Computed example of a mutant assay.
Amino acid sequence: MILHYEKERVYAKDENGMLLAEITFPETADGWADIDHTFVDPSLRGQGLADKLVRAALQQIAEAGKRPVATCPYAVNWFEQHPEELKDLFGP
């Protein structure tokens, strides 16, 4: 699956243009980006796509020189499960 990158958004569509997966992370305050929405089509769940989306969003946030915060329930859980990866990308 090919991920497409936009400012504050990573997504994937099928060959017909139907949205299959998406994560959004708008800037909320100076230097912060909120991962506020993660979507994976039910037909693709359980294949690690949401994890891939979070990682792609975090990489884009890091490259933009911002820091992440999560309000999306999936992302909140991901942050709790991967504190070392967050530390590696963004420091303490």
Rank of each mutant, 00 (worst) to 15 (best):
D30Y: 05
K7F: 09
T24H: 00
D34C: 07
A33W: 07
N77I: 06
E80Q: 13
F39H: 02
H37G: 00
T24F: 04
W78M: 01
P26L: 12
F79Y: 06
V10Q: 11
D34Y: 04
F90S: 08
W78C: 05
Y74T: 07
L89H: 11
K13W: 00
L58C: 05
A21C: 01
H4R: 13
L53H: 13
Q60E: 14
G65T: 03
K13H: 12
E27M: 11
L20R: 15
P42D: 11
V76H: 00
L3T: 03
M1V: 14
W78D: 05
A33R: 15
E85I: 06
F79H: 07
K13Q: 14
F25C: 03
K66S: 01
V69S: 13
E27H: 04
V40W: 03
E22S: 04
Q81L: 14
G17V: 00
W78Q: 02
C72R: 10
L20I: 08
V54Q: 09
C72E: 11
D41P: 00
L86R: 08
L3N: 03
A29R: 15
Y5W: 08
F90A: 10
G65F: 02
D14E: 09
A75W: 05
D41W: 01
R45G: 00
I23Q: 10
H82Y: 12
F90G: 11
K66N: 02
D34I: 01
A21F: 00
G65Y: 07
G65M: 05
Y74E: 10
P73S: 15
L53K: 15
E84F: 09
W78H: 03
E6D: 15
L58T: 03
E63A: 15
S43L: 07
A64R: 15
H82G: 03
P92Y: 15
G46P: 09
A12C: 10
H82A: 02
L20D: 06
H82C: 04
P42I: 04
Q81M: 14
K87R: 14
C72Q: 06
E84V: 05
L20M: 15
A29I: 06
P73F: 12
H37T: 02
K52I: 08
G65V: 05
A50P: 07
G48D: 08
A57E: 06
T28A: 11
T28S: 13
T71S: 15
H4G: 00
R55D: 13
E80R: 12
E15A: 15
I23T: 10
G17T: 02
Q59S: 09
P83S: 12
A29P: 04
D41R: 01
V69E: 15
Q47Y: 08
K66M: 06
